[in-house]
Computed example of a mutant assay.
Amino acid sequence: MGDKKPPLIIIAGPTAVGKTSVSIEVAKNINGEIISADSMQIYKYMDIGTAKISKTEMNGIEHYLIDEIYPDDSFSVSDFQSKATEYIALIRDRGKLPIVVGGTGLYINSLVYDLDFTQAISNWELRSKYIEKAKQYGNQCIYEELKELDIESANRIHINDTKRIIRALEIYHETGKPMSYFYKDFRKENDKYNIIFIGLTMDRDKLYERINRRVDIMIESGLIEEVKKLLNMGYSEDLVSMQGLGYKEIIQYLKGNYSLDESIEILKRDSRRYAKRQLTWFRRDKNIEWINIHDFDNSNKLIDCVVKNIKEKL
């Protein structure tokens, strides 16, 4: 990539791998500011279940696309793409380096690749129709429809993942193209930026341990109270935000469909599955320079390695 292009640093990886703490230290080292590429942390009031970074943890580093919209606001990949592009320009105008950090693959791809999502708008009427259908007839019903329209996406999405099944159906009906079309071969690379793409990874068993522990911490920190509060504020369980990991499982517990232990186990299991899907997604991208956290015996050495890697490519 040409030297004249402005740099865009991306730090990606699965949930609970440690992207937040690494990105803060990296930002301090290279005079950067952070744009979140997390489809859940964008919502206000949803803090514990999204493992949202606190003001203290930010350590003086400016963050964007966190706490920007309300849980009942719509926010598409297209919205992310345009907002993130604005913030990249703003950060550069401030004389800083933009660092995009997150695990939502499609959000990251919207910046790394020349993808046009302008057609893939959110259709709330259609979405509500499918949510109702899933409630009435079960996930099997909408999953079978997806299999007919977009077998590739159906093979990649778990039958219990209502949110992603509906999103895939929505994209198909809105654009006339399957969601897999937008994923295929990652399309053409975005030549606006000098993209420096770092992927953080770790031993899978250790990652799963971290995910399980993180869920326990969420429960201890008041996730149940957070979900109750959101419902009391009038946010419906049918919202896309409330179908997110950590929220839908606790809603099922509050409705009496599961015991608390069952809900916690389902949340842990689904979080592990999500991490596995994230790794599969990112591993397809040959431009990512992978750094295994366990190759370093302390975090300073890890940060030094990431910073050195970035500085060499600036």
Rank of each mutant, 00 (worst) to 15 (best):
I250R: 05
K188D: 13
L254F: 14
N139C: 04
I9D: 01
D238T: 15
S128C: 09
D261L: 05
K311V: 13
I291R: 06
G176R: 00
Y70W: 15
I219M: 12
P6S: 09
K163E: 15
Y130V: 01
E170Q: 15
M58R: 06
I42D: 01
K206Y: 01
S36P: 04
L267W: 06
S78Y: 14
L115F: 03
E249M: 08
S82D: 13
N292Q: 04
H158P: 01
T162N: 12
H63F: 10
K308E: 12
N300W: 00
M179H: 09
N194D: 11
V307R: 02
I34C: 02
T201N: 08
A89Y: 10
L200K: 06
K133F: 13
L314A: 03
L260W: 02
G256D: 05
G32C: 10
R210T: 08
I9T: 05
T85H: 05
G222N: 11
V100H: 02
A168D: 01
L169S: 06
E33D: 02
H158W: 11
S299W: 09
E226A: 03
Y208D: 04
T20H: 01
H294F: 13
H294W: 10
A154N: 09
Y253V: 01
T56R: 12
L207T: 04
K135C: 06
K184Q: 14
I291N: 07
A154V: 08
R283S: 13
Q243G: 12
D38G: 03
V240T: 10
S271T: 07
I171Y: 12
I264A: 04
V22E: 04
G18K: 04
D114F: 01
Y143Q: 02
H294C: 07
Y172S: 03
D203Q: 11
